[in-house]
Amino acid sequence: MRYTLILGFILFMIGLWAMLTRKNLFKIVIGFSIIDTGVHLIIVTIGYLSGKTAPILDKLVTPANAVQKVVDPIPSALVLTAIVIGLAVTALMLSYVVRLYKRRKSLSIEDYRELKW
């Protein structure tokens, strides 16, 4: 599963590049959400153990052999909460974008130069 690790890394780099080079505020937020997906992919991959099943007990995974049969549940649990937070943070960023647009009527980051040095 090294491929998903590399995939997550490439997505992270594309998102970072978008955040650094794009001028449009929307594109910056999209870059942020791509970074989010990449990081989640990497964390889930680190918890994966090849040839094992999901951490849910059923007919095949009995309480006796659960430890030998399941993948790591902790990264799944962490990513679960991280995805929900990601949505809330994206919504917060977008509401800032709407608010800035109402004030200055521009989506380009170059028009906001108060803190530029």
Binding site: M1, T4, F26, T37, V44, I56, I83, T90, L94, S95
Partner: peptide, 30 residues
């Protein structure tokens, strides 16, 4: 991919939030 990596909980959340609600929030802002 999360489903292939045997994390069905994460797959459900990502399918509902990442492709559903996040897109909708972006479209509302636009």
């Amino acid at each position: 991919i999360y489903l292939i990596l045997s994390a069905p909980d994460v797959a459900m959340t990502e399918a509902a939030i990442g492709s559903g609600l996040t897109t909708i929030v972006f479209l509302y802002a636009l």
